[in-house]
Structures are given as C-alpha cells and as structure tokens.
Design a protein around this nucleic acid. Sequence first.
DNA 1: GTTTAGTGTTCTCTATACGTGAACACTGTT
DNA 2: AACAGTGTTCACGTATAGAGAACACTAAAC
Lengths: 251, 251
Amino acid sequence: MDNHLSSVKNSCTLLKMFLDSPKEMGVSELSRQLQLSKGAVHKLLATLESEGFIKQNPTNKQYSLGYTLLELGNKVLKDHNLVEFSKQYLQRLSDTTQELTCLCVRDDYEAIYVDRIDSKHPIRFNVDIYRRFPLYATSAARAILAFQEPLFIESILSSGIRTYTAYSMKEPAEVKKRLDIIHANGYEVSENMRNVGVMGIAAPIFDTNGAVNASISMIGPANRVKPSLETMIEHVTTTAREISAQLGYRG
Amino acid sequence: MDNHLSSVKNSCTLLKMFLDSPKEMGVSELSRQLQLSKGAVHKLLATLESEGFIKQNPTNKQYSLGYTLLELGNKVLKDHNLVEFSKQYLQRLSDTTQELTCLCVRDDYEAIYVDRIDSKHPIRFNVDIYRRFPLYATSAARAILAFQEPLFIESILSSGIRTYTAYSMKEPAEVKKRLDIIHANGYEVSENMRNVGVMGIAAPIFDTNGAVNASISMIGPANRVKPSLETMIEHVTTTAREISAQLGYRG
DNA sequence: GTTTAGTGTTCTCTATACGTGAACACTGTT
DNA sequence: AACAGTGTTCACGTATAGAGAACACTAAAC
C-alpha cells in the first residue's frame, strides 16, 4: 500500500469503528482504538463534523455518526437499480411463501443483504440488512459463491472458515463439495447452518453476461418450511429466473 | 477554518458530489469539480476504494459510491431511536388518513425526512427521504422552525429564501409572520407551497426539555385532504402530542 | 491507418499540512 | 483537596499530500 492517504484512511476506519459500537464514542476511546494521538483524532472529528459525517452531542461532548451518511447511503441504494427492479418479485415471493425474503448481493469478497421483506407470521426470523458477511456463511451467499470462478472460490475458502452453529460446515473441502451441488441444482437449501432451527432456500440471479452477483432467498423456521419444501424451492427458483430474464439473461 | 484536514475535507466533498450527480463519475470530471489535480483525486479515490467508500467499475473505469456507506447510513438510522419510537404512531396515522405521512428532523440549519409511510391511494404524492431541505421550505420543517429560538429563526431567514412555486412565500417577513401563527396554533397547514396542488399538515414533537427538533406531517392532494381538513389536523396534532408525551414531555 | 482528444494511471519532487506529545481546562469521583 | 478521567489547544519537525508532467490506453475523427 503506497497509494494510501493516511488521514483519509484514518477517517474511514474511524467512521467504520462506529458500526460495531454504541451510538456515541469519545475522543479518548477513539484515539485508543485507532492508535492515534488524541489531538489528531480531535482534528479528524472536527473536520468530519464540519462536513456532516460526524455529530457531537453538546451535553456530553461525545461523538456519533452524522446524517450526511444517511444521504450517501440512500444514494447508493438509489443507484443500485437491481433493488428497485427486484422489489416487486421479492414482494410476490413474500406474499406466496409468507416468509422472510431477501435480496443479497456480492461486494468483492463479502455478501450483503440489500433488501428484505419480513414474514407476516408472529414467530419470525430476522436478518441484518446492509451488514457484511462471508460468502460461505448463508444460503443466499453460497448461491452466489457457487457461480464464481473456481480460482475465486479457492481464494475465499483458503483463507479459513468461521463456524456459526454446531451444524456449520467446518472444512473448506466440505463447503466446496456443497458449492458443486448448488451449481448443479441451481439452488441451495440449508438448515441450521447459521442459526439453529432456521432453513434457507436461495437461488442465483444471472445478469446479461451470465455472471452471478446477486441472489434471492427465503428464510424461515424449519418446522414451517419443511412440510412444503418442494413448492417453496419452486417459488424461489422461478422468482430468481424471472429476475434474471428481466436483466437480459438468456440461459 | 484552521482545524481542517485538507485531504479529509476533500474526500468528504468528493463523496457528497455524487449526491447530485449520475451514478458514476470519472477522475477527470471529479478533479475539475474539486479543483484538484488528477493525480491527487486518483489517490483519494484509491484510498476510499480500499475502505469500501467508493467502487470502481472495471469495464469503464468510472467510480461510484460504495456499499460501506450503506452500512454507515443504516447505523445512523438504527442509533436514531426516535425513528423506531415513532414508527407505530406514524403507521397508525397513515392507516387512519390513508395519506403519505412523514417523520422530519432538524439537522443544524436544515431539515431531513427520516421516515415515511406511503399513501395507499393510486394517485399519491412522494417525498425524497434523507435529502436535506431548508427549514422554511415544507410544512414539516416550518413546524420545527416555529419553535426555535428567535435569534435562530432570524439567522435562518436572513440568509435569503428560495421559492419553489408561484404560491411560495417570497419575503422573510412573510415567513416570520406565518411561523408566529404556527407557534400559536401548534400546527401548520399549507397548500401549494412546495408543490402545486399539494397540502401538508404538520405538528411539532417536543422532547423532555420542551425542545422541538422533529415533527410529523401528512401530505396529500388538496382535493382529497380539504374536505376533511379539520379531522385530518386533529389526527396529526394528537399523534404528535402522543409521541411528545412518550418522549417525556409534560406540556 | 493515422491523428487527435479525451481518458485513467504513474511518477518525481517540495512546500506544507499532518500527527506527535505535552500542556490546558474542565468534569466527576475518591 | 487530590485525583483520574475527559475534551481541547498548541508549537514543532517530519512524513506526506498535492502539483504537474509523462505515460498508456481508448474511441472517435479525418
């Protein structure tokens, strides 16, 4: 890395530190985590505040993220027309299955849910929207990963695997095998992988060039999903095919 | 400004330049707008890209906003508990009026809609969420401005007023007079101010200290709102009062 | 095919703006 | 009253950010 502007890099990591922290943080705490002098952090914060990226609470002097980030985040979503595009299909899938449905996209080496429609059932499962997770971690992500270049898959799996439940896959080879199955079937069904008692069904979305960078998925309690598993899979895969077709994919 | 870290300031304005531009922009265009050398902008972009704040399209080499901004924007919303707090009230107001309802907050010298529930009618009005606008521009904003310090109001109005329609108020004095009325009534009703044929009803939300930094509003076509104007106003004001009470306001 | 005008990228170099570290003014606690 | 924590300010030297030119490439123009 010789193309890094240190102060810019610092402000970026500073902002991202708020993601896994409580709403407000002070200069001292931030300087400790950033391993930067208090004075430097203070200057960083002052600059970011004048630009609306950071807000200072006048009473306790603590800092928090500013509204400008809301504006920018919303612009990202607006520009990402796949979300608008898929919304109606996602809504219909939600109506027919009555379960949580998600739109997932790949961002480099990670996956993000960019849209979600909650289940109508009183007992329902939830996912964090806009949070990153590994490409092998959820059914939605695996439905994307399974259709990437072999070398890419290799590089993802070689860097090690985190397990979430006792039922999670532990070995990269195990994941690779499953990805092959997904590739052959054209969809993924998983149970207990990320959360116990939860089933996920996911299918890839192909763009004009036949590349897969997104997927749709349906997530629900196993006892509710299993009885009608076959029709559920049918609904998910056809929805994904419809979106792919709309994007110009001729498979 | 002697507390400005130039490169940080530059990266902030660079990111904000995307707000009013098409999805993708190139180095040259950005360097022209920023009035910075191409080399410098390129380094800025490279740093921001490595942090996920910017994304480069591999085919046309153009740059766009990155998904990390989505994450950060969502965190802002999550931390802003007024939104979660008010959601049920906003939903109920939407159910009873069947019109677009909004939650508006003040951010320094501007206003932002931070939540919105769309009207169920086929013909409906829309507002941009998370975009800033002046504190005198919409009924929701004026419902906030009317309850600020006189000196603050003065400073807002003295910097000039932008008009949106032929019916918009043109003189600061005119706005000041209306703010006094809002303050006396405890709510605002406007027509044709921002968009012709559109009516807005807004009422302030008071926090524990009696300060107003938010408002709720109902927006709809004049022909649909006017016939039952009195009951509509009643619904909006009582909802605002309920939220204020929940926040600890004892008026 | 060659020219041209645009692009994004890479390079060197120097003024300067960044980050350090210490001192400051507070606050609430011991 | 001493203390330990906070956020803020400042002067100083060195790393570095930004300028500006050269580069590689593309796509249109002749």
